[in-house]
Design a protein around this nucleic acid. Structure first.
Length: 631
DNA sequence: ATTCAATGTCATCTG
DNA sequence: CTCAGATGACATTGA
């Protein structure tokens, strides 16, 4: 189920982003009405929307597990972030043809099936014209009228007619898989090279594939070039704000991923998106991330909560971050929509099959420490790594039991996982990572042991092995307490424990060290989280100040222009006045040597200019105030 | 082999 | 003084 959902989500997201960027509003609800409709379409050949990079297929395989080895449950988030970054990188059109060409592979055979000469094909021209129109519409901010169904009139027939051979299908898939493999490499290497190669590959596909006879190889490249040339102007296609905001997108603080922990704590629910806003995909007016919709979405619990992350990430962003807001919301909203709709329609057999993979993922999910929120989800993984009971505690306030139940629910685990309410998730993710210390402290002295014991027992069941060094040391003492308990028990109980157990001095020191290290570990984690919070806050502050600075600069320019205009008017008025003013000899005054001065009482006086004072100083006293009446 | 991020640990300070 | 928490600095680990 995860495979299918992720696969479809990926494809839809990418396709949606692609279409949205060229101004086509995509209504995915038509797909959601029938969950497997994409499958039906892909039977006849890979629909352009669903041959997109199947990251999760890769991630779920042994070869591709490295994609997100630490936190598969946050895979949505990271994948969305990765897609988001890709889209952000589209500020330069270099990467874009990779996706576009994948789309074109289906577009061309469809047109070829009509048997028309491509350059003269009116439909084709219509398509191109339509694209241009969409682009123009998009420029005007009105290009959201086209629905997916319209677009599918281009791509679907080729799938239905099965004109794409199996070979071509496989090649397409391989292409996409290669894209997946090269995704990371592209990040470091020159993106244009791969883009070109990908485009070439797709072009080769088109040329050498099972194209109908009317489509000769000589005709296609110009067409592709024409089509791609449309996207060469991508920067101009994309709304102006996109390019305006590029600088901000290259923000040196990459809090998109790394600082998510910091953002987590800022996860006020007010920023979460409501599923009711599904229909407002990619609308400019809906892109302000400061939504106040409560996070009561019934679907996409994890993703919706992660959207809170997204919202938080852009919460402090000012206008210069609007693009991120647009894309974040578009991407996450799609995920939110697709996330968990119609889960009940999944074949139970498939669910069972995938359960194994899922368990494997969770088993393989290993994260030392807590990774704060992320690892808090991985409590269920028995292979949690080494040196910490912190990951045991990472369930923190009550999370472990839920995850425990999650991992034990068999085929329903995914559903139950997604059945977590957003509030629950918030409680489990956005909680203060003081772990159960607060819980233990809040509990009365009589039940502190029970509270800790329950938590630890569930965790011990989940992780009978992989104990930390301190855990091993404590166990070696033969004490009926775990390191977790020792860390989190009240100090009076800890002292009582030290007294009762007839421990040697070294053992007492060991237990004290265990307790100290455990507490300090949590403190360090909190400290780092706060630090990231501070960084993000400062970043938002800087952005706000930059906006303020820009506003002040604009205001200064405006004021300078007004002042200049006023000075010109004053000069003109002065010249007019000087033309009527005469000295005692009846000679007109030279405006270059004299200036009018308005006194506080409203009187207007004639004064020699200061820069000419040296020349006219001697005579100025006599010339001054010859006439102070306005004409 | 090197780099880097994440995390754990220690020392120290503060309330 | 002890304790808990905060934080800088360093070590370790894994990608």
């Amino acid at each position: 189920m995860h495979h299918m959902k992720k696969y479809f989500t990926e494809g839809l997201i990418q396709f949606t982003i692609l279409l949205s960027l060229i101004g086509v509003r995509v209504d995915v609800d038509t797909y959601l009405s029938g969950y497997f409709s994409p499958l039906i379409e892909t039977d006849g050949g890979p629909s352009s929307a669903f041959i997109q990079t199947p990251f999760h297929h890769y991630r779920d395989t042994a070869a591709g597990h490295h994609v997100h080895p630490k936190c598969p449950e946050l895979d949505y988030f990271f994948t969305s972030r990765r897609l988001l970054n890709e889209v952000r990188a589209l500020g330069s059109p270099a990467r874009f043809p990779t996706r576009v060409s994948a789309w074109l592979v289906h577009l061309v055979p469809d047109e070829g099936s009509d048997g028309d000469e491509l350059p003269e094909d009116p439909d084709n021209q219509e398509v191109n014209t339509e694209n241009h129109q969409e682009e123009n519409d998009h420029r005007a901010g009105e290009g959201f009228g086209l629905s997916l169904s319209q677009d599918c009139t281009v791509s679907r027939p080729c799938c239905a007619s099965g004109e794409l051979s199996k070979e071509e299908t496989l090649m397409n898939q391989e292409n996409e898989e290669e894209d997946v493999k090269d995704e990371k490499k592209q990040e470091q290497t020159n993106p244009s090279s791969l883009t070109q190669s990908s485009a070439l590959e797709h072009e080769d596909l088109v040329v050498s594939g099972s194209l109908p006879p009317p489509l000769s190889g000589l005709e296609l490249p110009p067409r592709l070039q024409d089509f791609l040339s449309d996207f060469d102007d991508f920067d101009s296609i994309v709304p102006q704000h996109m390019s305006d905001l590029e600088a901000d997108l290259s923000n040196p603080i990459s809090y998109d991923v790394s600082l998510q922990d910091a953002m987590v704590t800022r996860g006020d629910s007010a920023n979460c998106r409501s599923a009711s806003s599904r229909a407002q995909l990619f609308r400019l007016e809906s892109t302000n991330s400061s939504h106040s919709d409560p996070p009561h979405s019934s679907a996409g619990i994890l993703s919706s909560s992660l959207f809170c992350l997204s919202g938080n990430s852009s919460r402090n962003e000012t206008s210069s971050s609007q693009l991120g807001g647009y894309l974040d919301e578009a991407v996450f909203e799609h995920i939110n929509m697709l996330d968990l709709c119609n889960l009940g329609q999944i074949n139970p057999q498939m669910l069972d099959d995938m359960q194994g993979d899922m368990d494997t993922q969770w088993m393989e999910d290993s994260d030392s420490g807590l990774s704060l929120e992320s690892s808090s989800r991985s409590v269920a993984s028995p292979s949690s790594s080494s040196d910490s009971f912190g990951e045991d505690e990472s369930g923190a306030t009550g999370c472990s039991s839920e995850v425990e139940s999650f991992s034990s629910k068999g085929g329903a685990c995914a559903a139950s996982y997604y059945d977590w309410s957003p509030v629950d998730l918030h409680e489990n993710i956005w909680h203060d990572h003081t772990y159960s210390a607060t819980q233990a402290h809040n509990s009365t002295s009589s039940n502190w042991f029970t509270a800790i014991k329950q938590e630890v027992m569930s965790e011990d069941e989940a992780e009978p092995e992989e104990m930390s060094r301190d855990e091993h040391r404590v166990q070696a003492l033969g004490l009926p307490f775990s390191a977790f308990q020792i860390v989190n028990m009240p100090v009076e109980n800890f002292l009582e424990l030290l007294d009762r157990q007839n421990l040697s001095g070294s053992d007492v020191t060991l237990l004290r060290d265990v307790r100290r290290r455990g507490k300090n570990k949590l403190a360090a984690q909190n400290c780092r989280k706060r630090k990231l919070d501070a960084i993000v806050g400062l970043q938002g502050e800087v952005e706000g100040l930059m906006v303020q600075r820009d506003a002040l600069l604009r205001q200064r320019d405006h004021t300078a222009k007004a002042l200049s205009a006023t000075a010109e008017r004053f000069e003109a008025l002065s010249r007019t006045m000087f033309s009527h003013i005469r000295d005692e000899y009846g000679h007109p005054l030279n405006p270059e040597h004299y200036t009018l001065h308005c006194s506080a009482n409203g009187r207007v006086m004639v004064q020699p200019r200061t820069n000419t004072t040296s020349r006219t100083m001697k005579g100025s006293k006599t010339v001054k105030r010859k006439k102070d009446k306005k004409p």
